[in-house]
Simulated assay, not measured.
Amino acid sequence: MAEATNTDSPGRGGRGARDRILASAAELFYVEGINATGVDLIASRADVSKRTLYKYFPSKAALVEQYLAFVREMVTDPRAADADGPRERLMLLFEVPEPGEGRMRGCPFHNAAVEAAAVMPEVADFVQLQKQAFAAAIIELCREYGATDPDLLGHQIALLYEGAAALSTSLNDPQAWAYARITVEALLDQSRAD
């Protein structure tokens, strides 16, 4: 009598498959890029079949959306940051990252917007909503800080954040964050009528 064999390895399919797929996609999309990462590679890294991947994520666009939702949950709302006041919470956005071993990759939402612009409009819509919510949170902190024009200041700070993320990625150099930090400090100093 032939011995029964298990066609799935212990990690394949089954429990945790969705989480493994999402974790693998998150790492690969962020490091390698969305367009450069195929579902075959994600399935292989997650130790699942493509059929299992498509069971949980019916399209690559659906997987990208879930990846961005996963990232959004991990990104702390600047209003909830562990700091004493609104100024300190805003400044936490501009901590200068330590240079790592790999390339700087910047904002995952910006990266997704650029890569998905023409081929995944639903992803572009998701990113737009995320960026609007982020700017609104910064504006609210500026209002709490007592800025005379919190809308203007909030948009300036959001622009500096986006610029630092993009420039540090393009140059693979964290120095852009240091320059942005100095500028934000100056804007905050000038923003209140004393």
Rank of each mutant, 00 (worst) to 15 (best):
A2D: 12
A4T: 10
N6M: 09
D8H: 14
G11H: 11
G14F: 02
R15P: 00
D19Y: 04
I21M: 03
L22W: 12
A23M: 03
A23H: 05
S24R: 04
G33D: 11
N35S: 11
A36F: 05
G38I: 09
L41P: 00
L41M: 09
I42D: 05
I42G: 05
S49K: 06
L53V: 10
P58M: 07
P58S: 06
A61D: 14
A61S: 14
A62F: 06
L63R: 02
L63H: 01
E65W: 01
Q66W: 02
A69V: 03
V71K: 04
R72Y: 02
R72M: 00
E73D: 11
T76Y: 02
D77L: 03
P78F: 05
R79L: 03
A83F: 12
R87H: 05
L93R: 13
F94R: 09
V96Q: 07
P97Q: 06
P97C: 04
E98W: 06
G100M: 07
F109R: 04
A113Y: 10
V114H: 10
A116C: 15
P121W: 09
F126H: 04
V127A: 06
L129D: 15
L129M: 09
Q130Y: 15
A133W: 04
A136T: 09
I139W: 03
I139R: 15
E144F: 01
E144I: 03
T148F: 03
D151T: 11
D151Q: 14
L152Q: 10
G154R: 08
G163D: 08
A166S: 11
A166P: 00
S168E: 08
S168C: 08
L171F: 14
L171K: 14
P174S: 05
P174N: 04
Q175V: 07
Y179E: 14
R181D: 13
E185H: 08
L187C: 10
S191G: 11
R192Y: 09
A193E: 15
D194L: 11
D194N: 09
